[in-house]
């Protein structure tokens, strides 16, 4: 899932410092699971905002609502009534949500979170990046360990030779992805598959090809 974390309350307040009425929209999707944008965090942020602004002698009225998701038009349309007389909208969703709201409403929409990475929870309260969204997955070649995102240099024919005791040269807390790949393939008895030299990666499938679309004719309605 998408992992995101809250910006500082001061920073968020600054974005809407001139607004009298603000809508805070939470998202019950990924950001609830990673504990940063669910209904609980939305109402906490609203309370904090109200208290700050009241202390500054410039009180603000807040409306709070948590959408099921902010990345589907229908759920965003459902917010029309909620945000209609708000001067600004603070979205507690990932970057996608913020942009959907911006697309939908001609109001000042600001992000409350910084969207960090795609990953999963290691232990409750700790999340780790696992996928770099390169659009051309090579995991079948490396025993299920992604060199693009977990090797600092994203090289395809590693290791680069800088690793020590299985740790990456950039930091002794970061595992060398290729050490992990080597160990994994060895335990699976597929070391020979690693011998093949990988050609340079076709980055057009990734970000470098500009923003991407995914189309499924078979399921399109109407």
């Amino acid at each position: 899932m998408i992992i995101a974390q809250q910006k500082q309350i001061k920073e968020i307040a600054a974005m809407v410092s001139d607004c009298k009425k603000v809508a805070l929209i939470g998202c019950a999707g990924c950001v609830t699971v990673c504990l940063s944008g669910g209904e609980k965090e939305t109402e906490i942020m609203a309370a904090a905002l109200r208290i700050m602004r009241k202390l500054e002698g410039n009180p603000v009225e807040t409306i709070t609502f948590t959408a099921t998701r902010q990345c589907d038009p229908e759920y965003v349309e459902a917010l029309d009534g909620v945000v209609k007389d708000a001067d600004a909208i603070i979205s507690l969703a990932c970057g996608v949500g913020v942009q959907y709201l911006a697309e939908r409403f001609d109001k000042w929409v600001v992000p409350a979170l910084d969207t960090n990475f795609i990953g999963g929870s290691k232990v409750h309260g700790v999340w780790e990046e696992k996928c770099g969204m390169c659009g051309d997955c090579v995991l079948h070649k490396t025993g299920g360990i992604c060199p693009i995102i977990r090797c600092s240099k994203s090289i395809l024919n590693g290791p680069c030779g800088g690793s020590q005791y299985g740790k990456c040269e950039i930091s002794k807390d970061v595992d060398c992805a290729w050490q992990l790949i080597y160990d994994r393939m060895k335990s699976l008895g597929k070391l020979d598959k690693l011998m093949a030299i990988q050609p340079p990666k076709d980055w057009t499938k990734s970000r470098d090809g500009g923003p991407r679309r995914a189309v499924r004719e078979d399921v399109m309605i109407g």
């Binding site: 500082q8 309350i9 001061k10 906490i44 904090a48 905002l49 208290i51 700050m52 202390l55 500054e56």
Partner: peptide, 8 residues
Amino acid sequence: KLLDEIGI
């Protein structure tokens, strides 16, 4: 921590 940040 939040109360410090928001001024209370």
